[in-house]
């Protein structure tokens, strides 16, 4: 019984991963504010929220995959495919409707995600290798079929631009300039809540935790593993489709080589948020904070005068440091050497 109490304390401490992260974010923000007082302004925070939505939505997808003990690196290729196909369809058909864009992009996302899900659940291919392969196929096929022609601002249907500049409410600065909270942030929040609900209140969601916790127990508990895996990868595809449309609405420019290559930042955000690649452990709040941290870091690199060249280095370091901390804690808590590799 004593041992249980001791462990309980340790667990409570570990649970504070989010708390630590929160403290780091606040302290870092204060530091940046000290260098550049504009940082903490509501306007800049709204801006950060808007620009982090794409990464945030994809991060939630990656979070769900990692929770199940897998990994997906094809979601960027899925996002750009959805975006590019949707935008080009709208241009070609002349229909100027953002909902249609979402419908097309998400459908593409779900179909491509389903391919991942099929390969992983049916053929037991290691998730990294499967999604590495499909990533290459998806992106290569997109570039082969639709070419490398960019969609410039003039060609871009108005609905994207309108969606991109739509604020749910606006405020006025003393100098008369308007600023507001972008709809992107609302979409991101809705997705976060939806995902949280799925994970917490549906059998499917508990199944994802179950697979990540112990796949053999999940099999014995009669969970339908292939179905759950299939859902996971479709869901990631679906979220990537949304992220794709938001991305083009944000930058008002479409280029089929964009987004691909950002996998690293997204995965970094998720593992920074405390999600373990071994599955079963992690929270949505942690993931959101991870995304916030990476966004602030990117934003502040420029503020403190470091060029964006430093981006990859920081992302790499974040992955290494945050994973090292969780892995080392894990290694120590396992304690007995018998179970170590």
């Amino acid at each position: 019984m004593k041992k249980d109490i001791k462990n309980f304390k340790i667990q409570r401490l570990l649970k504070q991963h989010e708390l630590y992260l929160f403290v780091v974010i606040v302290m870092y923000s204060l530091f940046i504010t000290y260098l550049n007082p504009n940082f903490m302004s509501l306007e800049n925070l709204f801006d950060l929220g808007k620009s982090s939505a794409v990464m945030g939505i994809m991060a939630i997808g990656v979070f769900v995959v990692l929770l199940s003990g897998g990994i997906d690196i094809s979601f960027t290729a899925v996002a750009i495919s959805g975006q590019y196909i949707a935008a080009n369809f709208l241009i070609a058909s002349g229909i100027d409707n953002i909902m249609l864009a979402f419908l097309i992009s998400c459908s593409v996302g779900v179909v491509l995600g389903a391919i991942n899900g099929f390969l992983i659940s049916k053929f037991n291919i290691p998730t990294l290798i499967a999604t590495l392969g499909t990533s290459s196929v998806f992106h290569g096929a997109l570039l082969t079929i639709v070419g490398t022609k960019a969609i410039n601002s003039a060609q871009l249907p108005d609905c994207f631009k309108a969606f991109g500049s739509f604020d749910v409410f606006t405020l006025t600065k003393p100098n008369g300039v308007y600023y507001g909270l972008s709809i992107f942030v609302i979409v991101f929040i809705i997705i976060a809540i939806l995902t949280w609900l799925i994970l917490k209140y549906t059998m499917l969601g508990r199944g994802i935790y179950a697979i990540g916790g112990d796949i053999n127990s999940a099999i014995r508990s009669a969970f339908n593993i292939p179905k759950i895996q299939f859902f996971i990868y479709c869901y990631v595809g679906f979220l990537a489709g949304i992220a794709g449309v938001i991305h083009i609405s944000l930058i008002r420019y479409g280029n089929p080589t964009y987004i691909v290559g950002d996998e690293l930042s997204v995965i970094a955000a998720v593992v920074l948020g405390g999600t373990r690649i071994t599955g079963g452990t992690g929270t949505i709040i942690g993931t959101i904070m991870g995304v916030a941290m990476i966004t602030i870091l990117n934003n502040s690199l420029i503020l403190v005068g470091l060029s964006s060249y430093w981006h990859d280095l920081f992302v790499g370091l974040i992955i290494i440091i945050s994973v090292s901390i969780t892995s080392y804690q894990n290694k120590m808590s396992v304690g007995n050497i018998i179970f170590r590799r």
């Binding site: 995965i267 970094a268 690649i277 790499g316 370091l317 992955i319 290494i320 994973v323 290694k331």
Partner: peptide
């Protein structure tokens, strides 16, 4: 004790 996938993904970025 970092899983090789994440360790080398991180160092790839680094």
């Amino acid at each position: 004790g970092v899983p090789a996938i994440l360790a080398t993904l991180g160092t790839m970025g680094l």
